[in-house]
């Protein structure tokens, strides 16, 4: 086990995870809104926000896929120790973490079934920066229009076309997090 695997978790899990969930829920239910979270000090390259999301949502019942540089011994050990989540291939993942490039192609991930569209993966996409400047977002959770600095639009449009199936995304950068559910229509501006 890597030395920093044992540290960097929540000090007061019930309270910190409650605040973190509230931020995540706010982000996903209002696409384009950027929330700030705190409480995790995960090993690089995992961002604070991605670490907080995993501590809050992942556990022994939710397989996690680590993409690209995120699939490192220190990240693996940290997730294993703090979440107890099994680490798996993309197709079996309930959560996946990595950069947008490392996630490709996103068609590898579960999109749910017609009977159970909830059985779809949630992607935690690590971003170099995260702002409300970018492609135009419309749909549930958005009054009029919103914007978000997405890495591209085509893949998200294709995902939205699968609705009610499809993946759901959190975008993370440092301690910032934004949500992009499958219900959001993404368009270039």
């Amino acid at each position: 086990m890597t030395p920093d695997a044992l540290t960097g978790g929540f000090a007061d899990a019930p309270i910190q995870s409650a605040r973190a969930f509230r931020a995540a829920m706010e982000a996903l239910s209002r696409p384009g809104k950027i929330e700030t979270v705190a409480g995790a000090q995960p090993p690089a390259p995992l961002s604070v926000a991605a670490g907080v999301l995993l501590l809050t949502l992942a556990d022994g019942t939710t397989p996690v896929h680590l993409a690209g540089a995120h699939d490192s011994p220190s990240v693996r050990d940290w997730i294993t120790f703090h979440c107890g989540a099994p680490l798996v291939a993309a197709a079996d993942a309930v959560f996946a973490v990595g950069t947008w490039g490392a996630m490709q192609p996103i068609t590898r991930f579960a999109i749910g079934t017609p009977d159970y569209p909830d059985r779809a993966a949630t992607l935690i996409i690590e971003m170099p920066d995260l702002t409300t400047q970018g492609p135009r977002l419309t749909g549930p959770g958005i009054c009029d229009v919103a914007g978000l600095s997405l890495p591209e639009t085509a893949a998200f449009r294709a995902n939205h076309a699968l609705f009610p199936l499809g993946i759901d995304c959190f975008l993370t950068c440092g301690d910032k997090v934004a949500g992009l559910p499958r219900s959001t229509l993404v368009e270039d501006i």
């Binding site: 995870s17 409650a18 969930f21 995540a24 829920m25 996903l28 239910s29 809050t56 949502l57 992942a58 556990d59 019942t61 939710t62 309930v94 569209p117 909830d118 779809a120 949630t122 549930p140 959770g141 609705f163 009610p164 759901d168 559910p181 499958r182 219900s183």
Partner: peptide, 16 residues
Amino acid sequence: TKRMIRRAILKGIAVP
């Protein structure tokens, strides 16, 4: 239990 419920809420939000 809260994690399980929270995951369900997030999927509910994603598929209104």
